[in-house]
Design a protein around this nucleic acid. Sequence first.
DNA 1: AATACGGGGAA
DNA 2: TTCCCAGTATT
Length: 360
Amino acid sequence: MISPDSEKILTPQSDIFSIKLLQWFDMFGRKDLPWQKNPSAYSVWVSEIMLQQTQVNTVIPYYDRFMKTFPDLEALAQASENKVLHHWSGLGYYARASNLHKTAKIILSHYQGVFPETQEGLESLPGIGRSTAGAICAIAYKKSASILDGNVKRVLARHESIDGWTGHSKTLKLLWKAAENYTPTERIADYTQAIMDLGATLCTRSKPKCHKCPISDSCKSFIAGNPENYPKKKPTKKIPSKSVYFLIMINLDGKLLMQKRPINQLWGGLWTFPECDNIAEVSNSCDEFGQSAKTWSILPSSRHSFSHYHLDYSPVMIKSVAQNIELNRKDILWYDPNKPHEIGMPKPVTDLLVEIKKRY
DNA sequence: AATACGGGGAA
DNA sequence: TTCCCAGTATT
C-alpha cells in the first residue's frame, strides 16, 4: 500500500501538467535558439511571424539576416517595402512580411514605437492573431497567455484524444479550451517554450517518443495506444495545375524586365517576370511593355507547388531589340543580374536568375 | 465555415 | 507522392 502524498492530491491536474513539462524543459528543452537570447516584444514578434507555418531550421538563417538588417522596430518601419520583402524572399507566405512592415509603421506612428501590452491590443494589428498575440504576451511580457500552434495542437489533441481535423472550428475550440486549461500563471515563458519544444522534439507527427515524454502517464491517446491517430489528417483534396509562360525579356544592356505583383494577391509585392497563358500571345504581351520580340526560345518547364495548386512554368527567353527605354510605370523595372536590386522575388524567379546568370 | 496563401522537409 | 508545419486574413 502506497501512502498518499497529500501535496499531489491537493495539486490540480492542470498544474501537474505544467509542472511536469517545466521539469522536462529544464533538462531537455532548447534554450539557445537565436530568438531566445534577449527576448523583446520586437524579437518575439519577428520570430513568431516567421515561424508561422515554417519550421525552425528554415527560419534561423532568415531570422539572423532580418535582425541584422532591421535591428529594431524603427529600422523596420522606415525601410522600404521592397527591402523588407527582399529579406523574406524564399520564406513564403509573403503577406506575413507585408503585414509585419505595415504593423511596424502603425506602432511607430500611432503607438509611439511601443508595442501594445494587451492580448487584444496586439490582436488588432495586421498579421497578429490569437496565437501570436498569446506568444508575445507569454514570452516577452511574462503574462499568463495561451498559444495554439501546430506543435501545441498535436500535443493537446493526443493528450486529450481530441478527434477531428484541426481546421474544423469545433476541433479548434476544444483545443483552445485545453490550451487555456493547462496554461500556468508561473514561469509562463518557459512553459510556452516547453510545450512547443515537446511537440517539435518528442511528440512528433510520426513515431512520437512517448517513452521519453514527461506527460505520457496522463496522455489519453498514449494510454489507448494510438497517439499517431491524432490529430486527424486534413481531408484530402486533389489540387489543380496551372500552366504559364514566364516572359524573360532581355534588352541590349543584358537587363531583364520585371513586374511587381499586386499587393493583395499571390506573391503580393514580389517582382516576377510578366506572364502569359498561351504561346501565341508572346508577341502581343511584349508589345505591352514596349518591347518588340524578334525571336524567342522556350526552355523546359518546371513545377512549383503551392498548397492549393501546382504551377507549371515555361521560361521564354526573349531577345528584345529595344533599348533600355523609360517605361514610365511604377510596376516595371529593368533588373541587372550583376547589380541586383533589393526587391522581393519568389523561389522560381530566384532559381531562374541563377540559371540565366550561368548561361548568358 | 471555408478558402487563400509558399516553401521546405519528412516519410 | 502526400502530408504537415511556431496561423492569419478574407470571403
